[in-house]
Amino acid sequence: MHPPRTRAFVQVDVFSASPFLGNPVAVVLDGTGLSKQQMQRVASWTNLSETTFVLPATIPEADYRLRIFTPGGELPFAGHPTLGSAWAWLDAGNTPRQADRIIQECAAGLVTVRQEADELSFAAPPRIREGDLDKGELDRIVAAFGITPERVVAHQWVDNGPGWAVVQLATAEEVLALEPDLSLIPEAMVGAIGAWPEGSTHRFEMRTFAPGAGVAEDPACGSMNAAVGQWLISTGAAPSSYRVSQGTKVERAASIHVAADTDGTVWVSGTTTMCIRGSISL
């Protein structure tokens, strides 16, 4: 065990133009020499939905490597930590190999991040599981959500690493009315999405529940929105560019932009704000 040393540490608010209304991520900008157990201990202590550790890349194309932890364990990929960590890495004075994009290495592979004005966006990674939920899984989610199966418009596995599943309800109001009993689905990683009326600022309202990762309700979830965007856009259930509101029920005001390029690549973006700069002894 090496003696503790001072490392740069920041907290970044992601997916909100107003500080402290998005989803924060804690970033340790130098994770070299730390064990997985040490990283997990810090993530449990910060008690944020994710804490990340920046490390030297092991793949020549990558600018850095990122390890991502929830209070309950390590994730191969997550969206808002990707954007927040990229912002922190740039803020620390680093320069990407390519002028127009950052290449992040994580357990799920390489993730491309690009910067436009004051927003970063990441390219949605491929889903490792998709298709309709099986009846047993859907029944458990419906029971936990306290609704009848008839209220579910559509459902899908949208797993790009964390294990996500999603159910679509008819309206945003129905999503906001959910009072889930997560004790019925303690291992679940599940979201609910519903549409706002035409002409609204946001096309959809999203809620994300992650008891399986030790997070009851995530204020804003990039990875969920990325995979749901791939699903909805590919099936024609959503336009090629739309905005999602998230965090309303936990007193946040996240705004997430989801858009598909002409080649089908889905990008997820949002405003990112540096809120805390300091150091941590590890």
Rank of each mutant, 00 (worst) to 15 (best):
F77Q: 08
A78P: 03
A78Q: 07
S85D: 02
S85R: 01
S85G: 02
S85M: 02
G93N: 08
R101N: 13
I103G: 05
Q104G: 06
Q104C: 07
E105K: 08
A108N: 11
G109A: 01
L110A: 09
L110F: 11
V111P: 05
T112R: 09
V113Q: 00
E119A: 14
L120Q: 06
F122G: 05
A124V: 10
P125Q: 08
P126Q: 04
P126N: 10
R127N: 13
I128N: 10
E130R: 11
D132H: 14
L133C: 03
D134I: 04
G136I: 15
D139N: 15
V142S: 09
A143R: 06
A144I: 13
F145T: 05
I147A: 11
E150W: 00
E150Y: 02
R151D: 07
V152A: 02
V152E: 05
V153H: 02
V153T: 05
W157G: 01
W157V: 07
V158I: 02
V158C: 01
V158G: 01
V158T: 04
D159M: 10
N160A: 14
P162Q: 01
G163H: 00
W164L: 03
W164T: 00
A172W: 02
E174K: 08
V175P: 00
V175A: 02
V175M: 08
E179V: 14
